[in-house]
C-alpha cells in the first residue's frame, strides 16, 4: 500500500460514514466542516500535494455524489497557486472560502454557484478571480449538484485560463471514474443476489459480458485519468482526453446500470437515477467529441 492508497481509503471511510449518496440530496454544512478542518482535504493544493492525490480524493467524492463544492474549491486553489496568486489560498485551504468555476465563461448556470466565496471566470482564455454580486438558485436535473445563475464583480486578471481548464478536466474525469466505479459495484452486488429462473442473474452470459464490457470502458477511462493526474509532459493533451473518456464511460455505465438493475433501477428510491443524472449533466457541460479533437490537435498527431 502506498500513501495514495492510504489517503484513498481514509477518504472513502469518511465519506461512506458522513456523506452517503442519499444524504447528498440535501445540503449538510457539517460535512464540509469536517471534510476541510478535520480531514484537511481542502488544504492539499496549498500543501503541494501531488495532483494525483487530489484526483484520488475527487474520485472518492464521486463515489458518493458529494454535494459539497470540493471539486471547484481545490481546482481553484490549485489554479491560483500555479498562477502565483496567493490572496485567497489560506481561505480555500481551511475551507472557510469555497469556489465555483465558470471556465467556459457561462454565468447563467454555474455548478456550486450558490454560496461560492470566489468564482474563477474565464474571459476568452484569460483567468479572472471574481466575487458574486447576485445569486439566483436553480432547479437542477442532477439532484446532488446544486447550481445558480450568478453575476460577478469586475474581478482581477490572474493569468491564463488554459491550465485551469485542464485542471478542471482532470478533476471531472476523476469524479466520473469514481462514480462509475461505484455504480458498477452496485450492479454486480445486484447480479449476485438477484435470482431468476433459479440462478443468479450474474451467471447469465448476456449480463456477465455486459459487465465485462463496462469494466473495460471504465478501466480505460481510469488509466487515462490516472495517467493525466500524474502530470506527465503531455498533461495538456492527457487532461481533456481523460475527461472525454471518463464522461463517456460514466454515461454508458450509468445508462446500462439502470438496464441491469431492471425494474428496481427505474424507481425513485434506488440510487441508479442519481448517478445517471450526474453522469449526463457532467457530460453535457462539455462536448466529449470536441475535447478529443482538442487533445488530438494539441498532440500534433
Amino acid at each position: 500500500m502506498t500513501e495514495i492508497d492510504d489517503l484513498r481509503s481514509a477518504v472513502r471511510d469518511f465519506l461512506t460514514d458522513n456523506a452517503p449518496v442519499r444524504s447528498n440530496l440535501e445540503d449538510n454544512p457539517s460535512t464540509w466542516k469536517r471534510l476541510s478542518s478535520e480531514m484537511g482535504l481542502t488544504s492539499l493544493p496549498v500543501e503541494d500535494a501531488p495532483l494525483s492525490w487530489l484526483a484520488a480524493v475527487i474520485e472518492e467524492t464521486g463515489r458518493v455524489l458529494l454535494r459539497q463544492p470540493y471539486l471547484p474549491t481545490v481546482v481553484a486553489a490549485t489554479a491560483l497557486k500555479a498562477a502565483g496568486d496567493e490572496q485567497h489560498l489560506a481561505g480555500l485551504a481551511d475551507g472557510s472560502l469555497t469556489a465555483a468555476l465558470a471556465l467556459d465563461g457561462d454565468l447563467t448556470q454555474v455548478p456550486h454557484g450558490l454560496e461560492a466565496g470566489i468564482v474563477l471566470v474565464a474571459k476568452g482564455d484569460e483567468l479572472w478571480v471574481c466575487e458574486e454580486t447576485a445569486v439566483e438558485p436553480l432547479e437542477t436535473l442532477d439532484l446532488t449538484r446544486p447550481a445558480a445563475r450568478i453575476q460577478v464583480s469586475a474581478g482581477r486578471h490572474v493569468g491564463s485560463a488554459l491550465h485551469a481548464r485542464d485542471l478542471e478536466h482532470i478533476s471531472y474525469a476523476a469524479e466520473s471514474v469514481g462514480a462509475a466505479q461505484r455504480v458498477l459495484e452496485l450492479v454486480v452486488e445486484h447480479l449476485l443476489v438477484r435470482t431468476q429462473f433459479g440462478r443468479p442473474l450474474g451467471s447469465f452470459q448476456a449480463l456477465r459480458h455486459k459487465v465485462a464490457d463496462l469494466t473495460v470502458l471504465l478501466e480505460a477511462a481510469r488509466s487515462s485519468t490516472w495517467y493525466a493526474a500524474g502530470e506527465p509532459e503531455d498533461f495538456a493533451v492527457a487532461a481533456p482526453l481523460a475527461r472525454a473518456l471518463a464522461s463517456e464511460a460514466f454515461v454508458t455505465v450509468t445508462g446500462e446500470a439502470i438496464q441491469l438493475f431492471g425494474g428496481i433501477g427505474f424507481t425513485w428510491e434506488h440510487d441508479a437515477h442519481l448517478f445517471f443524472k450526474r453522469a449526463w449533466t457532467t457530460a453535457l457541460a462539455t462536448d466529449s467529441k470536441a475535447l478529443k479533437k482538442l487533445a488530438f490537435d494539441r498532440s500534433g498527431a
Binding site: V188, L192, R199, F204, R208, H209, A212
Partner: peptide, 18 residues
C-alpha cells in the same frame, strides 16, 4: 468472449454459467 468471462469471474466473482 473468453476475456469477458475471465473479467466477470476473476474481478467481479460472478458465477460461471451453470
Amino acid at each position: 468472449e473468453i476475456q469477458r468471462n475471465v473479467i466477470a469471474e476473476r474481478l467481479w466473482k460472478l458465477p460461471r454459467d451453470t
